[in-house]
């Protein structure tokens, strides 16, 4: 199908974009990579009256280290993350995550920040943000800049703490040191589809013992699901294949996944059991 009419605005600066957005926030949408918004518009599931195209605004792309954090600017394309030359556990997680996002022609356009602002609970970047307690920086003309932690950011499917007049400008993640290992595993019926269930882990192992454990699951709830039960099982224990299975079992007990045409709740629980050990095994490879 073809999208409905809209007014097209292409600001040259972030300030100009915020002014344009503030004119009619409820009827406007920010256009970044367009790989989720435009299909929805083609189906007329979304009919924004105005599109604010941020693709020509300078300084909205790139990844940089700032102290013990890594800042990813919002319009950084998936492909740039897949090709990232960052030889840390975080770099590895971002490269692997990007390789799971759609396909090459999706990754050339689609953006890291767009994926997070869109808030599909099975998206790799929402999972990574949940896993690492990311901090999202958003700006509006009326209220300036505010920073929202991941635990407050993701509200529900396609719904975040962002106000309609705000633009996501960057996401800050902890620069995990070399004592961390990271991993991601997911299952989809076709390569490149959104995962039915996805599992991510970041684990710090010192002298064979788990010092820090983070587990985040996708496809089991409306927002990225941090499994406190799995993290509790892992923490302070000696690393072993058995421990991975115990953690996965705890996570499977803890989640209450939805049933839909892609799989019922029990099936998703089984996927958690199967995928979490794979993600964590990657985590200590």
């Amino acid at each position: 199908m073809k999208p409905a009419n809209f007014e097209y605005v292409r600001p040259a600066s972030l300030e100009e974009a915020l002014v344009e957005l503030a004119k009619d926030p409820d009827e406007s949408k920010v256009l970044a990579g367009g790989q989720s918004l435009v299909p929805m518009m083609n189906f007329r599931l979304a009919r924004p009256e105005r599109l604010i195209d941020i693709n020509r605004i300078p300084l909205l792309e790139g990844v940089e280290s700032v102290g013990d954090r890594v800042v990813i600017r919002a319009r950084t394309r998936h492909l740039a993350l897949q090709n990232l030359s960052m030889s840390t556990p975080l770099g590895s997680l971002l490269r692997t995550g990007a390789a799971h996002v759609g396909h090459l022609p999706i990754r050339t356009r689609g953006t890291f920040g767009g994926s997070i602002a869109h808030c599909d609970a099975a998206s790799e970047w929402c999972l990574v943000a949940g896993l690492l307690d990311a901090e999202m920086t958003v700006r509006s003309q009326a209220r300036g800049t505010r920073t929202i932690p991941a635990s407050d950011f993701f509200w529900s499917i396609f719904t975040t703490a962002m106000e309609p007049d705000e633009i996501l400008t960057e996401v800050s993640l902890p620069a995990l040191d070399d004592s961390y290992r990271t991993g991601i595993a997911e299952f989809a019926r076709r390569a490149g589809d959104f995962a039915i269930v996805a599992a991510t882990g970041a684990v710090q192992v010192v002298d064979g013992v788990v010092r820090d454990a983070r587990v985040c699951l996708g496809g089991v709830s409306e927002v990225p699901f941090r499994s406190a039960a799995a993290e509790q099982v892992l923490l302070g224990q000696e690393w072993s294949p058995r421990l991975l299975r115990d953690a996965a079992e705890a996570a499977a007990d803890e989640v209450d996944p939805p049933s839909d045409s892609h799989g019922d709740g029990e099936y998703r629980r089984d996927l958690v059991r199967a995928l979490l050990p794979r993600a964590l095994a990657g985590a200590v490879r």
């Binding site: 367009g34 435009v38 022609p105 356009r109």
Partner: peptide, 8 residues
């Protein structure tokens, strides 16, 4: 490479 149906 891009999808020409997903770009205006």
């Amino acid at each position: 490479p891009v999808r020409a149906c997903l770009m205006f």
